[in-house]
Computed example of a mutant assay.
Amino acid sequence: MSTALTSKLPALPLAALGALVLVSVLGVGAVRIAGLSAQQQPDASTLATRQLRFEDGADGSIAVRDAGNGALLTTIAPGTNGFLRSAMRGLVRERKRQGLGPERPFELLGRADGRLTLVDPGTGRRIDLEAFGPSNAVVFARLLPATSPGADHVAQR
């Protein structure tokens, strides 16, 4: 820079702005590393739980089974239910990345406040399904036990 321009720029305000940017970046980084979020809500009590297994069919369908008794809950036809497919694909990919197989079932939790959470106990990953809208959450709400108040509550939201 030329000496004329350097003499016109005030050093103190520029240093203060630089310090502000540095503190902001460090603060955001610390919050991200700590896993904190202003939007996290405490989990409401669980009203309904179902352990699920998802089995790929040769024709591209997905059989959804109750892991407790092996009962077929539903079959997802090929090319349908894109949200369910993408949610499960992400969870299964994480299992493979960690060297885990399909032995442990996934857990679907229906909460007292109507929220649904899909949990992979093997990896610790969880998907708060209400974040994707009520029409997507209903796809999973149908998999809860029919007699559970959580299934009714989520379906009505």
Rank of each mutant, 00 (worst) to 15 (best):
A87G: 10
V119D: 01
L12Q: 14
A87L: 04
A15Y: 02
V28E: 10
L73S: 07
R89I: 06
V21Q: 04
F83S: 14
L143E: 00
V139C: 07
D56F: 03
L100G: 02
G110I: 04
D128H: 05
P13H: 08
L5N: 02
V154F: 04
G99C: 08
R111I: 01
L36G: 14
R115V: 09
P105M: 12
S2K: 14
G35E: 06
L36A: 15
R32S: 14
R32C: 11
R157I: 05
N69G: 05
D128G: 01
F54T: 08
Q156G: 11
R157Y: 02
A4I: 06
L5G: 05
G29I: 01
L84K: 09
P145Y: 04
G90I: 06
R142G: 14
Q51G: 13
D120N: 12
I76E: 00
A63Y: 03
L108K: 01
A15N: 04
G90T: 13
P78M: 10
I76V: 15
A44E: 11
S37Q: 01
Q156A: 15
S2W: 03
A151W: 09
R89L: 11
L52T: 04
R89G: 12
G82I: 11
R53Y: 12
A4M: 01
E130K: 10
L91N: 07
V154L: 11
E94T: 07
Q40A: 13
G150D: 08
A151L: 08
S45W: 08
T49Q: 14
S61G: 10
S7N: 09
R32A: 10
V119I: 02
G57R: 13
S45Y: 02
R53M: 13
